[in-house]
Amino acid sequence: MTHANVEIGSAGGRRLANTGLYAIYAVAVLFTLFPILAVVMLSMKQPSEVFSWPPTFLPATLNLDTYIYVLTETTIGRMLWNSVFLTACSTAGCIAISAPAAYAFSRLKFRAQKPLLLILLVYQMISSMVIALPLYRYFEALGLLDSHMGVILVYITVEIPFTVWLLKGFFDAIPPSLDEAARIDGASRLQVLRIVILPLAKPGLAAALIFNVIAGWSQFIIPFILIQRAEMLPISIGVLNFAPGQTEGEITIPYLAAASIIAMLPALTMFVLLQRYIVQALTGGAVKG
């Protein structure tokens, strides 16, 4: 106990504790970034370097040949576009559909309110694998397998529960007196949502946007089961068995590495740019539920 007091008291002790904290930070950052950096380095190696022993962390030369090859000579470019399309459409659709529902849960009183919110919470916990089995049958019967439209509808559905909860939390934080003032001035509820609530809930919309983009970009089970034609696949599935052209075995490794980096880059960039909204949403709402 005296030990702890010394730690707080003396300047030397404080410096020691700070050094300890910095050491923890260094380990955490290294643990996180090392795998990414190692694969970035590998992606810049020439195929021949992969066979050289001992393996090195850094490539012999920094070049982007593998990236150029992967983007121009393989289907990755096409898959990247598919991912962008699926993610953009499902994100826009999900927010457009979830915002009115969140409004009802936040501003209206009705008997089914609590049970419905609970059902949303339950749906959020269920593996997509469970619903993907019957969906495969329906889509096959309807000729919707391999259609982006069908997949987008399912993406939207699985993201609705979380998005509604998230937006409801942000709507709840807006004082209802503001809507009432607008209602007295003759605004309808739709106008209130558009003119009062949505502009004030911009951080919430930003959080919903990021979460939907990240989730859409990472979707795996649904496209894995509902899409089979290679040219329709999103990149999250494209990297799974990525092997360019006629290459085989070891030679594919730098290309696979490049494809993985390409696959994570869009979501990563978006996250770094908008991360404060994620942290805000996670620290504000997720625990309170």
């Binding site: 996180t32 990240i214 990472s218 795996f220 999250s236 993985s260 696959a263 994570m264 990563l268 996250f271």
Partner: peptide
């Protein structure tokens, strides 16, 4: 947090 954004397959 960056690791959390990367798709599970990747």
């Amino acid at each position: 947090l960056a690791a959390w954004v990367i798709p599970g397959v990747v």
